[in-house]
Nucleic acid binder design. Sequence first.
DNA 1: AATGAATGAGCCTTCATTCAT
DNA 2: CATGAATGAAGGCTCATTCAT
Lengths: 261, 261, 261, 261
Amino acid sequence: MDRHERHQQILRHARDVFARQGFHASNIDDIVESAGIARGTFYLYFDDKRSVFEALVDRFMGRLRATITRVDPSHPTLPVEQQIKGNVQRVIALIFEDRATTKLLLNDAMGIDPAFDAKLARFYDDLATLLEESLRDGQFLGIVASGDTRLFAYFAMGALREIVFQVLIRGVEVPPASGGDETAGLVDSIFEFLRGGFLRLPHFVPHLNTRRNDDDTRVTETVGPDSVTGTALLTRANTSSSTAAARRSTHPESTANLAKG
Amino acid sequence: MDRHERHQQILRHARDVFARQGFHASNIDDIVESAGIARGTFYLYFDDKRSVFEALVDRFMGRLRATITRVDPSHPTLPVEQQIKGNVQRVIALIFEDRATTKLLLNDAMGIDPAFDAKLARFYDDLATLLEESLRDGQFLGIVASGDTRLFAYFAMGALREIVFQVLIRGVEVPPASGGDETAGLVDSIFEFLRGGFLRLPHFVPHLNTRRNDDDTRVTETVGPDSVTGTALLTRANTSSSTAAARRSTHPESTANLAKG
Amino acid sequence: MDRHERHQQILRHARDVFARQGFHASNIDDIVESAGIARGTFYLYFDDKRSVFEALVDRFMGRLRATITRVDPSHPTLPVEQQIKGNVQRVIALIFEDRATTKLLLNDAMGIDPAFDAKLARFYDDLATLLEESLRDGQFLGIVASGDTRLFAYFAMGALREIVFQVLIRGVEVPPASGGDETAGLVDSIFEFLRGGFLRLPHFVPHLNTRRNDDDTRVTETVGPDSVTGTALLTRANTSSSTAAARRSTHPESTANLAKG
Amino acid sequence: MDRHERHQQILRHARDVFARQGFHASNIDDIVESAGIARGTFYLYFDDKRSVFEALVDRFMGRLRATITRVDPSHPTLPVEQQIKGNVQRVIALIFEDRATTKLLLNDAMGIDPAFDAKLARFYDDLATLLEESLRDGQFLGIVASGDTRLFAYFAMGALREIVFQVLIRGVEVPPASGGDETAGLVDSIFEFLRGGFLRLPHFVPHLNTRRNDDDTRVTETVGPDSVTGTALLTRANTSSSTAAARRSTHPESTANLAKG
DNA sequence: AATGAATGAGCCTTCATTCAT
DNA sequence: CATGAATGAAGGCTCATTCAT
């Protein structure tokens, strides 16, 4: 086994060990035992425990950066929306392809080390800045709502981060899109949310208005003030178990499992 | 100093030490040195390092749960929107009031322990379920867009989580709302984002249209297909430094500092 | 509660705690909690943990010494044998009366401290010397076999120590003597053993012969050379469980429980 | 140094440290310092302090069990008595060969741990059961007195235990047998004691009678009742020092040193 | 290159003892 | 006298890292 292969082998096993037990609960023994190598061999390839972790996350962050391609509005065949959607799709695909490392990035990466925290912050900043710049462009084109684009970037990243966390780490399931693969439903949902949030893609504006922004007449028809009978955006938690709460809900079809019922 | 005071004192110092160094990088010595007590004294009040941390986070989670009050649509004076906004405001206020513990919850809470991970998951599940149920009610009333409410809940929580993280941990600043206090701007931004996402509050629809959705004429003017001159929603990262990227940006006013320029 | 009462109370609880958990596994907390006093109060009555233990064992050793009364061969009413038996009886009675402290003496007293080990050694030496001197006298009178009396003393003390240990600590039961109380059977057994070993009390010799030394005829009948078919005094341990071994024994009535079956 | 050697080295040093200071007064540092190894090295070979101790005692108990061989009454050359004596000799030899571990077994083994106490109890139970079964066989053959064999077993074990303790731990010396090695005298003494106690070996019966059980006539000659002038089996302890007691004794040749005077 | 035994700093935790109230 | 909070020395154990083979 040549040097590169051995390097990859250790990375692979370290990743799995970290993903299973968490960075802090894993020790060098776990890794070398998993990889079937001697303790000392590990140190021939990595300086220390931290650096394996860093290599894993670095590689993954690089892939994430690389997968986000420039949107070209003058593209001959692909409309802007498709390009944007493509970015989201590729990011999601990458994440699903390497669930273990995604877990590390989301669960373990922070708190390793001040230096590593800084690197992580830089990564997220870069992503946020990228997104922010794009949103500025979008505002210029009229396809992004006016407002603070940095905030929009954080909102978008936060929403994406959370749903990825829930699906990958917590095991929440999303209903697959019609005719789509495993992640298509997720991509669609995110995209719809982002579109509803601050995207104003021109050919969707009427559609949006039709579906979501009712005119006065129709609003009056469906949600006139006298029809408001009592509801809550947020209700106080009054059960110790969320599943129990869901069960007692007046909407029994609501479960943590989001697969289309 | 009586038992309760000493307990609080240790909690306070432990919180600050954890917030400064992270849970894993902190040791009992750091805590007792900060509190100015003997090593053994710590163990008179807490079983171990983990349990202080747990006490801190438990207390904070309890406060968060308690601060979210039931929305009453038939309230004589407060409109539904104000009640919802009130919930967001109080959560934000609580978070800003105890930045250190918020930091712990966001940065350190995961990976402590399988048992603690489970508790954390339960907490977030409860919140998500609460939100989900409210969104169901909202859908019934016509003030929440149709769609998977569980996903909506995750999106909202993720967005909130991220902005709180950026503001509190990363030091990002948000412009204060006109005439509002420190957090008012943040609350408004979140609320606007959520409203744009899936809220359909009837009396805000025209307002929304006015502020965010340009009228037909202007839309046609700015984003007609032939006016698209070339831009990107997302562009490939091509610098290692976000500040360098920001500097090269065509939108020089864009910085990590979101304070109104 | 006056000083003496409090002193006794602490001793009593310390004794019980030590007996239950052993000296090394017991801590001051266990004792003060059991006694229902404050930590500091303990130190008003005893210098340290060791000294409570020492007080307990000292008191007990003193009682043991005091209970052994001088045998007077010219006693008007009590024959020598009865006086000897009386000593054994009183020792056994004392031991049974304070099982907890006996446990301490047998199980925990050694290894506390070099100084305490020395004291313990002195105590046992004193007893051995007492016994040795008596045996010398007995040899002079012809009621003790010739031989090294110091060895005899150790043998006697060891046998006594072991049976007391088995009965009190391990819970072995001995069959009560006919018409005797709880400990009479034990006293008789010990006494018979010692008598068979090296005591030569004249008026018991025929009795001994009758009960224990078969006459030639009967010996020939039971153990003539041609009747020896093969057996063992000591057999190699070949089972992991003594109870299993006992069960497989050709003498099924043999159990650890010595109560008359 | 290979793994096994290092293991043995640690065991050896741990044994010596424990024997010198006692289990509870010894700490890991004492052991590793004695062995000249690092703290961590110790934990490569043993789980904890307790487990080294356990390894020592386990090994020793195993040896003791293994050294006791089956007695074969139909043996062509060795008479039963010699076989029994052989067992005693080998046990004594083993004990003298590893004085340090014997010390541990007798002084430190109890009170380590409830689990270890149980193991110890099982060991002694096994020995007692072995002995008991042999005694039963002996009774059948007519070479063991009638009576409770379990009690006999405890008496024998207790006597052996005590003399071993006195000789090995307390430094008492026994006179060597004529023409025998260091332990021969001890073996003979024990054997004689046991024989006088409950063994009834056929070819020794007359011998016993001759030496130890005087007939009436001879008894009358030597210890007639009127010649009893006053003595004690047990006299009250009246000195704090055994040596002082011995000095004041009417039998000045009596000392703790049992070497033939 | 590979090994794995050895290292020892570091950390958590216990608990006998003190002392101000 | 009684209290019990506070103390801090002591000790067990871990584990990332080194290095001779």
